[in-house]
Amino acid sequence: MRVTQGAFSFLPDLTDRQVSAQIEYCLRQGWAVSVEFTDDPHPRNTYWEMWGMPMFDLRDAAGVMAEVRACREANSQAYVRLSAFDSTRGWETVRLSFLVQRPSDEPGFRLERLEAQGRTVRYAVRPYAVDRPAGRRYGPASAARGEAR
């Protein structure tokens, strides 16, 4: 399956050139770009690991791309996303977020159903990958490497 979180997941994976153009757009809006990664793609996993702090003072797309590449290199089988934060009054939130890397194999999610009263069902979505410990969830390399990064 294909996790379709982020603004552009229904398009073919973006090239670095396309990613760069989006970063430039964010910087033109005055937004602060940040890089995050995870190996738990649950739709309600809000807090991905931060690859450093949001780059509030970096106004150069090439600099952001260097961080994207470094994050990908260190986490080659993780989901990596780029987010742009707008600190304008009334927003103070992310204004654009999209994936810039996904694991080579995405096993997806199990839907668990717990039958309750009447015909009511309680649902839980569980990523298959989280059955393994953090750091060993995706790809043969990460499985072999053990728990520590």
Binding site: V3, Q5, P43, G108, F109, R110, L111
Partner: peptide, 11 residues
């Protein structure tokens, strides 16, 4: 809704 959410990883 829950089936589609599990199939996409989206809320």
């Amino acid at each position: 809704v829950n089936r589609a959410s599990a199939d996409s990883g989206e809320v």
